[in-house]
Structures are given as C-alpha cells and as structure tokens.
C-alpha cells in the first residue's frame, strides 16, 4: 500500500507490458507495451480497459464484476497471480507492470486461459449436499447453528478465480491432480452439518489425483484472494483419508 502515497499529476503514466498471443498468427506469446494513465483509483483492470478502449481494441481479457466476487479477471501481475480488479496500479509504480495470463492453463488468446478442464472435473468432487434421506422442503430448514456454519464457512468463499491453480507447482507438473480449489470445495461440503456425503467423496479424493497429489507447498493459500486456505483443506483431507482407510480395515462397512 505504501506506493499509493506518491503524488500524482494528471499527466502521470505507467507502462503496462501485456502478453499478447493470437493463435492464428503467433507461434508464441510476445509482449506489447502500452502507456496508461497512473491514477490513484485505477486498478490494473482500469489500465487494461484503457488499452482496449483507447489504444488497441484487439486486446482480449475476461472481466465482469470489478468488485472481487465473480472470479473472472485472474491474471499474473509481475509474476504473481492476482485479481486485476483489486490490484492497484500505484502499488506497482513506477512500473512497468507486466501482465500475463495465469500459469498452468492453455492460453486461448492474449490474457484468456482455457479453464475447461477445471470446470469439467468439478462434478467429480460431488460439490452438493448428499443425504441418505432428504427431508421434504415443506418440513422446513435443516437446523444449523452459527457454530456449525463457522466450521465450513471459510471453505465456502471460493470464487473459482483459478489463482491457486496458477500458483500450484503440482498442477503445473501433474495434469491429473484435481487441484486446490476442488479439494477445498469437497471439504466445504464434508464439513457442512447438513451433508452426509463424506464417504463418497473420500473414495474420489484419496488417491494420487486427489488430495494425495499435493506436496504441500502452500502457495495456493498464500495467493487466495478470499482467505479460503485450500492447503489447509488438502491437509485435512489427507488426514481424513488416512483415518478412513484405517477404519475401513477395522470396520467392514467402512467409516463415516
């Protein structure tokens, strides 16, 4: 934040070094430099929009809510994964500010990455309430105390921005690893007092492609803009899976 106290004249600018890639014409990505106004209130997203609106309409990037909740605008700024809408230009003054697509995903175009594999694999962790017997809606809510809510609340904050996938070295090396956000989501439902699906999820997540793919580097938790702590979720999952496999040897019908 200290960088934001710099005094700014209306003519101050900052250089954006933006990764460009067009699959029809480019063998590999290259950088293009753009000077954009350096204003106190401007985020990198405002800078990119200035490029698109005033300098080069062909620049492609995703964005939507500009308030850190839709998860669209994850990119790398000077090598670190961030949400563009909450990364201020002044925090990176005097620049240049290097903007690149997230790591560990195929690049579709410029700053747009292909997250199809994540979205397609999401159902594998069964991220919905599983119950042996569903209570009819007309009988009212499942009671859940504030304390029970607190237990899983943190893991329910994930916005699927993919920053943790960009930061995770295992995701980069092992395409089968389902990744931090997916495990955190499984944990979100496991910890929900209304859910009874832990046993189903454990069988999916306790192999190498699931939680055990993680080597516990912890980068996912460090870059998470919502404080979700996927690394913590993965650790919990490993423990749970280990306990479950021990219990399944003792209890023939498996552990719950």
């Amino acid at each position: 934040m200290e960088g934001r106290s710099v005094s700014l004249t209306s003519k101050a600018t900052i250089a954006l070094r933006v990764a460009r890639y067009r699959p029809e014409t480019d063998d590999k990505p290259h950088f293009a430099d753009y000077d954009v106004p350096l204003r106190k209130d401007w985020t990198v997203l405002d800078g990119l929009n200035h490029v698109k609106n005033e300098l080069d309409p062909s620049l492609a990037f995703r964005w939507s809510c500009r308030m850190g909740i839709c998860g669209s605008c994850g990119m790398n700024v000077n090598g670190a994964p961030k949400l563009m809408c909450e990364t201020f230009l002044t925090d990176h003054a005097p620049g240049p500010v290097q903007v690149e697509p997230l790591n560990n995903f195929p690049v579709i175009r410029d700053l747009v990455v292909d997250i199809t594999s994540f979205v397609q694999r999401l159902p594998q962790v069964k991220p919905w309430i599983i119950r042996e017997e569903e209570k009819p809606v007309d009988e009212g809510e499942y009671l859940q105390t504030p304390e029970e809510l607190e237990v899983f609340q943190q893991y329910s904050m994930c916005i699927n921005c993919m920053l943790c996938y960009s930061a995770c070295p295992v995701v980069g090396l092992d395409p089968h690893f389902i990744g931090p956000a997916a495990v955190a989501l499984a944990e979100r439902y496991d910890l929900d007092s209304r859910d009874e699906g832990t046993a189903e999820r454990i069988s999916l997540l306790s192999d190498h492609d699931g939680a055990f793919g993680c080597t516990f580097v912890g980068e996912c938790t460090r870059v998470c803009p919502k404080g979700v702590d996927p690394a913590g979720a993965i650790q919990r999952y490993k423990l749970k899976a280990a306990q479950s496999s021990v219990l399944s040897m003792i209890l023939p019908r498996g552990a719950r």
Binding site: W128, I129, E134, K135, V137, D138, G140, E141, Y142, L143, Q144, T145, P146, E148, L149, F152, Q153, S156, Y189, D192, R194, D195
Partner: peptide
C-alpha cells in the same frame, strides 16, 4: 419462502439464529 428453503436444502449457507433456525 419455499424457494429460499429449497436453496437451504441445496446447501446455501444462510446466516442463522443461535438455535440453528434461519
């Protein structure tokens, strides 16, 4: 109300009263 209850059954983490009700 029924639609909001349905969302509750689908896992929406509604804020709660101390006794666990919505």
């Amino acid at each position: 109300p029924r639609e909001l209850l349905q969302l509750e059954h689908w896992g929406c983490p509604w804020s709660r009263q101390p006794d666990g009700r919505i």
